[in-house]
Design a protein around this nucleic acid. Structure first.
Lengths: 195, 195
DNA sequence: CCAAAAAAGATACAGTCTGTATGTATATGA
DNA sequence: TCATATACATACAGACTGTATCTTTTTTGG
């Protein structure tokens, strides 16, 4: 009889799904995945556990959805910041800075870099941001190697280790570290790869 | 009336404590911290939950004890492999290899590098192996910088990022990656720091 | 050597959480 | 408009954590 009655099914679903994801994200950031209960999530989202389990298979599934959101947002921020015309060496630095910047979104670093690997397993997580975050890095490194700008090294390990440095830098900045110092070190590591 | 009756209190404690730590370590490695229940731990250790909660404050405390064991063993392995006479640049490489080697102990990388930060929080974890693992790295880098062998960079961020690269390498090797390739990249990153 | 105290360990219980099963309301489509 | 499907709510079973209490073994002081 109210406006609510006129909502289409898609609208209803979308609304509660969004409310659940927002509530879950907040709580996972505040207290971590393990310490957050589904009763708490649905209370904040103003729905019931029935709704949650209608939209998500289990607690891990809603966490996964949150992580996918974060990964997607991060990837978009990086792509937006690095025009494809940029030559390989600068693209790496620029993209890296954009990554650090994007990771400063409150709680994102903790979610993706700390909780993510534990809850989803590293393999599952790498699938998610292989399509997103690290793809740019791997492509940049490959291009730089092809152009003879940096030493030839095994791409997988190089991407992994450099990516780990970026991740650690993001966490350090979130914990109050200086972003400039972190970037200074990252640049030194990358430029040190010139042959 | 049996031999067991003759055990001193310290022996009893030590025995069950050890049994609990062994069982817990096995299970944490097999299934992860969250998926391991205290009933399962005590069953494998052949004691009851009463004993567990007599020796440890809570589930997190027994996990912490496991991690401390691992960190200590890792630190000892590194120290044993790097004689203090070694000059800074080689000490870094040698120590790094020793670290990778030590981290290949089944499950150690996952425990310390994946589960550890989530369960204990990164700060608490860094306290534990600031005294252990990364101390060597920081000292080596400082010495190399003092000797003018590598670029002058902020020590904290440099240690953190290089440490992250080592950690990621250890995880990659545990997941079946080539240790030689990982070392090749690590050496390239370090030698790239020469000024 | 023995009784009392302390330490180690076992048992029992309350509270909370997860996931499922079942029930109800709202929207859709014939 | 009626039947069905979708969205959501409620109720329940099983499991786990941490604590409180109770028992057993060791230690210690007289």
């Amino acid at each position: 009889m109210q406006e609510k009655s006129r909502r289409t099914n898609k609208q209803r679903s979308e609304a509660t799904r969004t409310a659940l994801l927002e509530a879950a994200r907040e709580l996972f950031v505040e207290k971590g995945y393990a310490a957050t209960g589904t009763p708490e999530i649905v209370a904040r989202a103003q729905v019931t556990r029935g709704a949650l389990y209608h939209h998500f298979d289990d607690k891990a599934a809603i966490f996964t959805a949150v992580i996918e959101q974060e990964a997607k947002a991060t990837a978009e921020a990086i792509e937006a910041a690095t025009p494809p015309s940029l030559p390989p060496p600068e693209a790496l630095i620029t993209g890296g800075k954009a990554y650090l910047q994007a990771m400063q979104k409150k709680g994102r670093a903790r979610l993706v870099l700390v909780e993510g690997p534990t809850v989803l397993g590293r393999e599952r997580l790498e699938e998610i941001d292989a399509q997103n975050g690290n793809r740019t890095l791997a492509e940049g490194l490959q291009a730089a190697m092809d152009a003879g700008l940096i030493k030839k090294l095994p791409l997988g390990p190089l991407t992994a280790q450099l990516g780990a440095a970026f991740d650690r830098a993001a966490l350090a900045v979130e914990s109050g570290g200086s972003i400039d110092e972190q970037i200074e070190v990252l640049e030194a590591l990358i430029t040190g790869l010139r042959e």
